[in-house]
Structure formats: C-alpha cells, structure tokens
Computed example of a mutant assay.
Amino acid sequence: MNQTTQQESVTLIIRHRARPDSIAAYEAILRELTRAASEFPGHLGVDVMRQGEHFTSVLRFATANELQAWLDSPQRRELIERADPHLIDGEQKELHRAHEFWFTTPDNPQKQPPRWKQAAISYLVILPLVMLVPQLWRPLFAQVPLLGGFVPANMLIVATIVLLVVYVFMPRATRLFSAWLNAR
C-alpha cells in the first residue's frame, strides 16, 4: 500500500489458510489480532469468515493511513509472526474501496459471480429491510416528531439499512448462498 492520504474508508481483505492440525492455535491468535486492530485509531470493524481451513478477515478503517499504521504496527507484526507457523500459504491481502469483496471467494479472489447473481442476493437482503426498518422506527417517530420529519426520518432509516446490510446481513447471505453464487 502506498502512503498517500485517503479521505475515504478502506477495506482490507486478508486471507489465511490454516494448517489442519493448527486451526485452534491459529484461531486464538486471530482473536488477538482482531482485538488489537479494534484498538487502533480509525478502526471501523472486522468480520471474519471461515470456510474449512480458509479464514477471510475483512478489516475496515476510516482512512488508508490509519490502516497502514495498523499494518506497520509492532503489535500486528508480532502476532503475524506467531501465526505464520500455523499457516500453509502465508498471507494474501487485497485492498478495496468498494463492497464487491462480498462476492469474492477464498480460492479465486479475482473471479466474481455474474452480476445478476450479485444483484439477486443484494435484492434478497435489502428488500425485507426496506419494508421492516421504517416500521421499527415508527414508534420513535410518533414520540419524537422532530425525528419523524421527512429528512431526519429518511436519514435514520437509510443509515440503519446500510449498517445492517454491510455489517450483519450481506456477509451472512453471501456465505449462505456461496455454492449458488459460485456455481458454474
């Protein structure tokens, strides 16, 4: 990664393949890594997905510089050195500024499913939220009319939907439908 200042959030995907006899030891170190990353400035969250011995960590930071500070930190370096004996292929990193990483696979990160499948999964995730989230906010809007105005209500509804899609439902949906998404 370069050292240029970025004003947009960045996502780093890190893929590890643990040795079958070292999965428990690797998972313990991975928990330490995620905890240490969460204490760094600019950390926005981390999701870890496991498929067999393949572990995919999706780290989000507010800026590229804050991500780089974590990557260069002595804490991370020490933890990666401890994890390395438990890995088969070392570490693969991908930097993203968009959310297409939802549809990548550990065995072939460059290949993505057809766009129509990506759209179908996105539709299945977003449609129920669009119908449900406004209903969940309705009691608060009734109690606090200022929040129920057109602009504030829509800001709260859209922010809720976006956060739920990004952090909760889309990672789970892509795991659930991974066989269909990646079928040939």
Rank of each mutant, 00 (worst) to 15 (best):
E66I: 04
Q143F: 11
Q92S: 12
G42C: 03
P20A: 01
A62L: 12
S22E: 01
D84G: 06
Q7W: 03
L146Q: 13
L129I: 09
A28T: 09
A62T: 05
P114F: 04
E100Q: 04
G149Q: 15
H16N: 12
W70V: 03
A62V: 00
S178N: 12
L181F: 12
I13S: 04
Q7I: 08
Y26P: 02
N2M: 02
K117T: 05
G90Y: 02
W70K: 10
T104Y: 00
R17Q: 13
L67I: 03
V151M: 13
A98I: 01
W70H: 13
Q68N: 15
L140D: 07
E66W: 05
N2K: 09
Q135H: 14
R175Q: 12
Q75R: 13
W116D: 03
L129N: 07
F141D: 14
H43T: 04
F103E: 00
T104W: 00
Q118V: 00
P139K: 14
Y123N: 03
Q3C: 02
Q112H: 06
Y26W: 07
T104V: 13
T34L: 03
S9K: 14
V125G: 07
V165S: 03
F141K: 11
L163T: 11
E91L: 04
S57V: 11
L136W: 15
H86M: 05
A179D: 13
L79G: 13
R76P: 15
R31V: 12
R50G: 01
T160Q: 12
T4Y: 09
Q135S: 14
R82C: 07
D107M: 07
R77K: 14
H96A: 00
A179W: 13
T5I: 14
R184G: 09
N108S: 09
A183C: 02
A179Q: 12
L79M: 13
A159R: 02
N65V: 04
